[in-house]
Structure formats: structure tokens, C-alpha cells
């Protein structure tokens, strides 16, 4: 049983078939890249997996249980956390509070517990939040408002918030968008270390170098269809992929 199984997934928007009969999987501890030219349906596929968009047909299973049709928060609570393409942090909350939302989302805290509960749960949430903050190196700026962080730091904040959920699968939507080469390289190393610790990661990326450099397997989408699903070296040599990327010069 794979960690995430995507079977014949299709999504139509009116006449447009954004994702067309895609089947793939993510194994536990794997680092999978999802690439494709603009409009290939990468982000739509991500939204289908994480429950933000409903499937037209097909099935998605996570840890063996069907999750298609589930609400995003249900899927997230099962151990799949995601980031967003256009960087969505909570701007008017401190860095610590931002990340704590991930901890609360995963662990839960009822209104009753917030008022009358004993300290145990709060301390556990706090500990988990600190752990995630230290992991991405934002512990020093914990009291800063998220809006005041630099763009690059906000990327890490978003990842920290996802990590605070202690997911089994982390899905990153274009994490390197807007970063320069050295920042991208640093981010690649960071994602690598997350994966080295056993976290399964799936990332959508424009930046072929990032994907080819760190992923153990690469899935290529073009016009909603899967055209390749193999190791980076194989994908790089695949004529179908080259054709899809013609003019993108990679």
C-alpha cells in the first residue's frame, strides 16, 4: 500500500479538462516532483488531492483510506499538509501564532479545554510549535508579525506551519517561486533534510533544476495528462517531456 494513491483522477471545468485521467502514487518517505508547463494542471491536481477542488471522476486514497470528497481540514488532520502557490501566511499574527495554528489544527483544542483545560494540551501545542520554528530557523523571530518578515522568511514560515502538523505527507506548491538562485539552492537542501528524516514530500515546481536535483521520482504533466513518471535521469531523456517543454529550454 502506497502512502498516497491517485487513480484515474479527472477534473473538468466546463469544457476544459484540467486534469485528465492521471494515475500515480507517493510512497512513504519518498520525495516526488510534479512538473509540467504552465497550465498543465499541476496546481489543480494538488487541489484535488488536498480537497480544495472536487474530483469529476477517479479516486484518491491516503494511507489506504479514500479521501476524495473529504473536506480539506479532514484530509489535513489525517496527516497531509500543504503550502500554497502564492504564499499565504496569516499576516497580522506573530510568527509563533502562525505556526501554532498548524499545531492546533492537528491536535485540536476545544473551547471548553481552552477555558477550563489543564495545561498539558497547551504545553504540548507550544512544544510542537517551537519544534517546527526551530526546524526552519525562525525561533529567534517568533514574536515578529508575519507581515514584517522578508519574502524568503515567509516561505519558511509557511513550511513551518505545515510541519507543525507533523504530517506524513507534505505537499509544497511551487516553493521556489520568487526566490533567487542561492535561496532556491538553500531551500532545496532544506527540503532534502526534511525528506532525509523520513517525511514524504511532493512538490510542484517550475524550476526543473530544483526538482531534478533532489527528487527521487518525477511526474510530468502536460495538458492535464501524465506523460512521464520515472527517475529524474529517465525523465530528462524522455522525448515526450522534451516536446512538452519545447521552448522552455531546460
Amino acid at each position: 500500500m502506497s502512502l498516497l494513491e491517485i487513480e484515474n483522477v479527472t477534473r473538468r471545468f466546463g469544457g476544459l479538462v484540467a486534469v485528465d485521467d492521471v494515475t500515480t502514487r507517493v510512497e512513504a518517505g519518498e520525495l516526488v516532483g510534479l512538473i509540467g508547463p504552465n497550465g498543465a494542471g499541476k496546481t489543480t491536481l494538488f487541489n484535488l488531492i488536498s480537497g480544495f477542488t472536487a474530483l469529476t471522476s477517479g479516486a484518491v486514497r491516503f494511507k489506504g483510506a479514500a479521501i476524495d470528497g473529504s473536506k480539506p481540514h479532514v484530509i489535513a488532520a489525517r496527516g497531509m499538509s500543504r503550502t500554497f502557490q502564492n504564499l499565504r501566511v496569516f499576516p497580522n499574527m506573530s510568527v509563533f501564532d502562525n505556526v501554532s495554528v498548524g499545531s492546533v489544527g492537528a491536535m485540536g483544542q476545544s473551547a471548553f479545554a481552552a477555558v477550563f483545560g489543564r495545561r498539558g494540551r497547551s504545553d504540548a501545542i507550544s512544544a510542537r510549535t517551537w519544534e517546527a520554528l526551530e526546524r526552519v530557523g525562525l525561533a529567534e523571530q517568533s514574536e515578529e508579525l508575519a507581515a514584517n518578515l522578508s519574502y524568503g522568511k515567509r516561505k519558511y514560515l509557511e513550511i513551518a506551519r505545515a510541519l507543525a502538523m507533523r504530517p506524513d505527507l507534505l505537499i509544497l506548491d511551487e516553493p521556489a517561486a520568487g526566490l533567487n538562485d542561492s535561496e532556491t539552492a538553500e531551500l532545496a537542501r532544506f527540503i532534502r533534510t526534511l525528506n532525509d528524516d523520513g517525511l514524504a514530500v511532493m512538490l510542484v515546481e517550475h524550476d526543473m533544476n530544483l526538482v531534478m536535483g533532489i527528487c527521487s521520482r518525477v511526474v510530468v504533466l502536460a495538458s492535464g495528462r501524465k506523460i512521464a513518471d520515472a527517475e529524474p535521469a529517465v525523465v530528462r531523456a524522455d522525448p515526450a517531456v522534451l516536446e512538452a517543454y519545447l521552448g522552455v529550454d531546460e
Binding site: 488536498s50 480544495f52 473536506k71 480539506p72 481540514h73 489535513a76 488532520a77 499538509s81 500543504r82 500554497f84 499565504r88 496569516f90 499576516p91 497580522n92 499574527m93 495554528v101 498548524g102 492546533v104 489544527g105 492537528a106 506551519r161 505545515a162 502538523m165
Partner: peptide, 13 residues
């Protein structure tokens, strides 16, 4: 208040 869709992705109902 900040971003309810994003909160949803964080496991919050």
C-alpha cells in the same frame, strides 16, 4: 479572520 481557506488546510474545521 486572516485567511479561512488557509486555516482549512491547517486542519481547522
Amino acid at each position: 479572520r486572516e485567511d479561512d481557506q488557509c486555516a482549512d488546510a491547517m486542519g481547522i474545521d
